[in-house]
């Protein structure tokens, strides 16, 4: 399945770096958005008064 190259380590590590960096570019906005939305949800709950304080 996976082709075997003469310079396998070099080729695969290059593609690996590409994959990792691109994956981070995809994941970062998603994670950021999730955190932001949680914050906004909390703020909205605080405003409307139905905020369940986890510490109480």
């Amino acid at each position: 399945m996976i082709p075997e190259f003469e310079y396998a380590i070099y080729v695969w590590s290059s593609y690996g770096i590409f994959a990792v960096v691109i994956a981070w570019q995809i994941v970062q906005p998603v994670l950021y958005r999730r955190r932001l939305m949680a914050e906004l949800r909390e703020e909205l709950a605080l405003q409307s008064g139905d905020y369940n304080d986890p510490n109480s």
Binding site: F5, E6, Y7, Y10, V11, S14, Y15, F18
Partner: peptide
């Protein structure tokens, strides 16, 4: 040989 295949991630980037 095969090492030029790196080109396909290197050059577009």
């Amino acid at each position: 040989s095969d090492s030029f295949r790196i080109l396909y991630v290197h050059v577009p980037s």
